[in-house]
């Protein structure tokens, strides 16, 4: 189970979305939040740090959120880290691809802060 001491990685190429996600996490009591602007930067953080939850955008320049998810699930040392995909790609096929790749849950943009908070809470209780 996640606690308010858990370290959470927020990955998005748009600072606006990182701010919205961070504000929601802080409202839920999480203070240990690290950020990455893309998949490659996220890989370095995940390798070097103990990350307890990854909240990641799908559509980013360079490495996509889906590619980062596949890399996380294929790497023994952090393959079980919960992964919440935040995506504007609401097409059924995309959601199926994320599920097949092992996503823990996903939030479709646009979303209210309430919906995002509920998804994070649901993961926190199961993790």
């Amino acid at each position: 189970m996640l606690s308010t001491d858990s370290k959470i990685l927020v990955v998005d190429d748009f600072s606006t979305m990182r701010r919205i996600v961070k504000a929601t996490l802080k409202q839920l009591g999480y203070e240990r939040i690290v950020e990455a602007e893309g998949g490659e930067e996220a890989q370095k953080i995940i390798k070097d740090d103990q990350i307890d939850l990854i909240i990641c955008d799908w559509n980013m320049p360079g490495m996509s959120g889906l590619d980062l998810l596949k890399w996380v699930r294929a790497t023994d040392s952090f393959k079980d880290v919960p992964f919440l995909m935040v995506t504007a790609e609401a097409k059924r096929q995309n959601i199926l691809s994320a599920i097949q790749a092992g996503v823990t849950n996903y939030v479709v943009k646009p979303f209210s802060k309430q919906v995002l908070a509920e998804k994070i809470q649901a993961i926190a209780e199961k993790a």
Binding site: F14, M17, T87, A88, K109
Partner: peptide, 12 residues
């Protein structure tokens, strides 16, 4: 990000 979200929602 707003442009991205509108495009994504419409494309879905």
């Amino acid at each position: 990000e707003i442009t991205n979200m509108i495009s994504g929602a419409a494309r879905a």
